[in-house]
Structure formats: C-alpha cells, structure tokens
Amino acid sequence: MPIFFLLATISTSLALIFASLSTSVIISRRRRRRRSVGFFHPYTNDGGGGERVLWCAVRAVQEEDPDLEVSVFTGDDATPESLSSRALDRFGVQLLRPPMES
C-alpha cells in the first residue's frame, strides 16, 4: 500500500511538472508570435476607387497599431515596394511601410 501511494505521488508530480513546462512553452511562443492582418483585393493595379479604399484602410491599420504586420493578397504580380509606391503615386496615400509579401 505505501508503495502504491509513493508511485501515485511521483506520477502525479511528474504530470504536474510536465503540464507546467508545456504551458510555459505555449505562452512563450504566443508572446513571440507576430500579429498580422490581411486584406484581399484581386486587382490592386486597376486604379479604381476600390483600390484607394484599400490603401486608406492599410494606412489606417498601420497608424492604429504600428507593430501589426499588414499583408495584401492580390492576383496581380507586384512586389510590396511597387504596391506601396503605386499607392502613393496614384492615390496620394503614404504607407508607413510596404505591406508584407504574400
């Protein structure tokens, strides 16, 4: 009987230690994870009114939370830098930084 009690105590202690370590690893990973937001616009190079709304929304998100990564998912073949320069040239919207490559 005392051996059973000892084994149960040891196994419970090991389970608690394992659970504690697992929880701290998960919390640590979540703190290091970059937060991001994505916009989908299939034709960012068309130059219509919808594109201006897109770039104004991207700029607003960047101003609201500078640490938030912003991605623009598009069907166009464009780099983040070309999208950013087009937003400025075509619509006068200066982004804080180019969107992430998606």
Rank of each mutant, 00 (worst) to 15 (best):
M1N: 05
P2A: 13
I3E: 07
F5I: 01
F5T: 04
F5E: 15
L6V: 06
A8Q: 05
A8H: 02
A8I: 01
A8N: 06
T9I: 12
I10Q: 07
I10R: 08
S11T: 15
T12Q: 10
L14M: 04
A15D: 10
A15S: 04
A15Q: 08
L16W: 15
F18L: 14
F18N: 08
F18S: 09
A19W: 11
A19P: 00
A19D: 02
A19H: 08
A19L: 04
S20H: 14
S20A: 07
L21C: 01
L21F: 11
S22F: 12
S22W: 15
T23K: 15
S24L: 13
S24D: 13
S24C: 02
S24F: 12
S24R: 15
V25H: 11
I26R: 15
I26C: 09
I27C: 02
S28P: 01
R29Y: 01
R30W: 11
R31S: 03
R31T: 06
R33I: 10
R34V: 06
R34N: 00
R34L: 10
R34T: 02
R35S: 03
S36H: 09
S36N: 07
S36W: 11
V37A: 08
V37W: 09
G38L: 03
F39H: 10
H41V: 08
H41A: 12
H41K: 09
H41P: 00
P42R: 14
P42G: 03
Y43G: 00
T44K: 14
N45W: 12
N45Y: 07
D46N: 12
G47C: 08
G47I: 01
G49S: 14
G49D: 12
G49R: 13
G49T: 11
G50H: 02
G50P: 06
E51V: 05
V53W: 04
V53E: 05
L54W: 03
L54R: 02
W55Q: 07
W55R: 04
C56W: 03
A57R: 09
A57M: 15
V58Y: 10
R59A: 10
R59I: 00
R59W: 03
R59Y: 03
A60S: 14
A60K: 14
V61C: 13
V61W: 14
Q62M: 11
Q62P: 01
E63M: 08
D65N: 11
P66E: 13
L68C: 10
L68W: 03
L68S: 03
E69V: 09
V70M: 14
V70G: 05
S71P: 00
S71A: 01
V72N: 07
F73A: 12
F73D: 01
F73H: 09
T74A: 05
T74E: 05
T74Q: 09
G75M: 04
D77N: 13
A78E: 12
P80K: 09
P80W: 02
E81G: 04
E81W: 06
S82C: 01
S84F: 05
R86Q: 12
L88S: 01
D89G: 01
D89Q: 10
R90N: 08
R90C: 12
R90S: 07
F91H: 15
G92K: 15
G92C: 05
G92N: 11
V93P: 13
Q94P: 00
Q94F: 03
R97L: 04
R97Q: 10
R97I: 00
P98Y: 04
P98S: 15
P99T: 06
M100R: 15
M100S: 14
E101K: 04
E101G: 02
E101P: 00
